[in-house]
Amino acid sequence: MTAAPLPNCTDLVAAVEAVLFVAGEPITVEAMARVLQISEEQVLTAVGALQQRLDESGSALQVIAIAGGYQLCTRPTVSEFVARLLAREQGKLSRAALETLAIIAYRQPITQPEIEAIRGVACASVLRTLLDRNLICEAGRKSTVGRPILYRTTQSFLHYFALRDLSELPPLDAPTSTPAEDGGA
């Protein structure tokens, strides 16, 4: 029954830390369980223990659940210094890109004409940008006239917004309140 667990709990937490440290991308619980030869429950326990250890020691690192797995990253409190070290301008997505991305995220898989019907504007160039940035990808074709390409969001999309999975998207507001009630500026 016991699948050759590691000698003791401390080593297990250290092993999880090591795996997360070198991985360089989100590691799923299944992958960690396979690598460490422990159960998925043990992985979750170890991840929790690692997080607690990092919290208590005042480490600049933290474990976050992101894009379907776990990954080590720096804490927001030190972001200023890291940003200065990297000296790199972090671009933000344009409003058009965000709008399109939001529609795809909620309605995926969705075709370009469907997106354009919601936004009321042409979306070809925005879609190309999102495809180039790997935030969306093609997801087959819709079996309607013209067989238009379907789009869906990618793992990179989840990573871009630090989401664990799509279920973290906030529910869309039911269309009840009117802009007038919201109070115009």
């Binding site: 976050i64 990253c73 720096t74 991305l101 939001a102 906030p170």
Partner: peptide, 17 residues
């Protein structure tokens, strides 16, 4: 929903991997 996406984007940009 855009505001939420903006907040997430800003939050995520403060994390470094």
């Amino acid at each position: 929903a855009l505001e939420t996406f903006r907040e997430w984007e800003a939050f995520r940009q403060r994390l470094f991997f």
